[in-house]
Design a binder for these strands. Structure first.
Lengths: 208, 208
DNA sequence: CTAGAATGCGAGCGAACGCTCACATTGTCA
DNA sequence: TGACAATGTGAGCGTTCGCTCGCATTCTAG
């Protein structure tokens, strides 16, 4: 049975001193996680790397899962911020350029910390907050479906939901595999071009 | 540091009796893994589920990793068999039908045991044999690149490698997400149609 | 200045669990 | 049928590691 544990913080940091502590702990969590994977990560190692006692760690995080959970939250926050800030402009663009812009944003978001992203998606088991990643997926789907529906008459598609599913899956995967296999290619315009091409040809709109 | 352990079997089963034992152990591994995840899976639980003593388990598998490793191997074997048997016929088909056939095979392969596939890809940490999954990816890539190269003059693509990367990523992701989110949709022809459409339009070939 | 709250400390407890080993049972072969 | 190999058994050892708890230190507010 998949054990489900509480991942809510035990105590809120009030003073600046403790906020620094929590920050250091999360940074250390990321470093240890990338180095050793989830199974190899020990709370004692995290505390040590953070330059903090194990007792202090447990002041703010009730258990190991909560630690990773908070890290996921912070990471998603960072990625979301990168995307949402720019997204309002996209809706007004012509489809081809809009598609390109969305794909580019996805690339940017994944360029934030590919190594962390990798270890979080590949190594972290079913923590409650991993639903957070699904949720992100869902938001993307709804958003794309919205964009497609708004201009349905210009597009060569029949089923908006199906098309959105196909597109989100495809783009997410291309970005993801790039991030995992060739992190430096995340800023290669040729890949961006090609991904855009996939989308525009599928939608049946002019390529530029 | 990611610990690397040997995953080669400790002893080969010679008699039928022991072959049954090994089979039962692998079946139990799959069941426990699906139920509890990798961290929650204990070797004692596997032995118990298999109706075998813990000692017998360690006769054939040197450690927990080896257990999962063997399971991965068996699962990949099954998926490969499903694909490779049909693949020789595909090369002779027109591109659109060939694409459809390949995608369909991918769907079939993932329909073998989606729950197991899920837990293996999502929960199993860096075991040596997980490279096996990458290897599969690589084979797919080379194969698709080969098919594209053979008919390059009929296709609206510039860079065969890049196109292969984009296509393999996209199809793999669509199938994968279907398997994870809606396992029953793996045999829905509408999804197959749509995935095929994505490919044919991208390649710039007639849809049928 | 001081009382009490907030934060920090780390030795070590306890439980989980991978794995061993000494021994029992079953199969094979001449 | 006897000898030896192959296979099966499970109590429990040893280690790892998540986490507690009693106490020390630092901050804050009246």
């Amino acid at each position: 049975m998949q054990r489900q544990v509480r991942t809510t913080p035990r105590k809120r940091p009030r003073q600046q001193r403790s906020k620094d502590t929590v920050g250091a702990i999360l940074d250390a969590t990321a470093r240890v996680l990338k180095l050793a994977g989830f199974a190899g990560m020990t709370t004692n190692a995290v505390a040590a790397k953070a330059g903090v006692s194990i007792g202090s760690l447990y002041q703010y995080f009730p258990n190991k899962e909560a630690l990773v959970s908070a890290l996921i939250e912070r990471h998603c926050e960072a990625m979301n911020t990168a995307i949402l800030a720019e997204l309002t402009n996209v809706a007004k663009l012509p489809i081809a350029q809009g598609a390109r812009a969305v794909i580019e944003l996805t690339f940017f978001a994944h360029a934030i910390d590919p190594a962390l992203h990798r270890v979080l998606t590949e190594q972290v088991p079913r923590i409650g907050k991993l639903a957070k990643l699904r949720e992100l997926d869902n938001i993307s789907h709804r958003m794309v479906a919205g964009m497609l529906a708004a201009r349905r008459d210009e597009l060569a598609i029949r089923d908006v939901e199906l098309a959105a599913f196909v597109l989100v899956s495809a783009i997410e995967a291309i970005v993801h595999r790039s991030a995992l296999l060739y992190p430096d290619k995340l800023r290669d315009p040729r890949l961006l071009d090609e991904a855009t091409l996939l989308v525009t040809r599928y939608l049946g709109v002019a390529e530029n």
